[in-house]
Nucleic acid binder design. Structure first.
Lengths: 165, 165
DNA sequence: CTGCAACTTCAAGTGGACTTGAAGTCAAGC
DNA sequence: GCTTGACTTCAAGTCCACTTGAAGTTGCAG
């Protein structure tokens, strides 16, 4: 039994099969079930049998994680989607829109950091008050200005007087 | 004593001041010092006094975290920069370039996810074989369990809860 | 029917990045 | 010199998402 192929009648999956198909460890699946992210039926002997719809739920959870949600938040989001059938566009659209906004925000943040790093390549600073990286909460766009300190132009705040610890 | 203002002569900072200026908790600073991310001198009475250059190191560490590095990796990266003075362009450029590549990869991943979500708005699926979200093995699903809050964007519960098995 | 991989439960462990608590000491303003 | 807030250490705790281990059971091929 390779556990990868689906061979149960009725299209149900053992935990090993679900693991193989979802890319998650069996331990993770049991953990998810405990958290009620997925559910199963049991055989007479007590073994889990998963409906194929669980693959969809797992895909959802994985996507949720990538968007930055915790498993708890994923569970909440799942609760708003239909349990037994594939979500319809009407179910899905609001969730997807919310997630896209989060993704956009994340991308924007990364792009800001990227720009700051570019600036810092130019200035080699990390010591200047104006340096985006240095300044924790600047959020104010200092984007273009970075190239000012091009040639190791030393900062006004005399930093030179210090010796190492 | 508000602990925010700098008032020691010689420009040294108490741990409270460094905390206020860096935005980190004092406990985090002690922890960082333990990890040798920063260093201090001590007063006769045993209290820490931080050189202002530590602000620069902390800025670096914060940036490193946002790029997705662990504190250990941040320490390694720090080790390649000059300790006592602001890094020059030659010191900084290779680091910044490496980080930019990482950022680019992260942005690319997010953009892929975003596209997939767009597709799913259209199809309302999550159940179809062709659905990008559904299909698990499209590689590099690293953001999921990896560097999730590298954007500093709203950690799920308390400030600064990072994770990763 | 046997053998064995795959399954079961439950408790405890892991790892990263901190935080919290207890019990005590330091520094500075009055 | 007293008071008080800021500091000290060290051990232990927390959070999340799992993983590991032990000890036992199930299910299917041969």
């Amino acid at each position: 039994m390779t556990s990868t192929g689906e061979r149960l009648p009725g299209g149900e999956l053992t935990i090993g099969e679900l693991a193989a198909r979802s890319g998650l460890a069996t331990s993770a699946l049991r953990y998810y079930e405990q958290l009620e992210l997925i559910s199963s039926e049991r055989t007479a002997g007590g073994q889990r049998r998963y409906h194929r719809a669980m693959l969809r739920r797992l895909a959802f959870v994985r996507a949720a994680q990538r968007v930055g949600l915790s498993l708890d938040e994923a569970r909440e989001a799942l609760a708003r989607l239909p349990e037994n059938h594939a979500p319809k566009a009407a179910d899905w659209a609001p969730v997807a829109r919310t997630w896209q906004r989060r993704i956009d925000a994340q991308i924007a943040e990364l792009e800001l950091l990227r720009r700051k790093l570019s600036g810092c390549i130019g200035c080699g600073c990390l010591s200047l008050k104006k340096c985006g990286l240095y300044n924790p909460d600047d959020s104010a766009a200092d984007l273009g200005t970075g190239a000012r300190y091009l040639l190791g132009d030393e900062p006004p705040t005399k930093e030179g007087a210090f010796r190492r610890p």
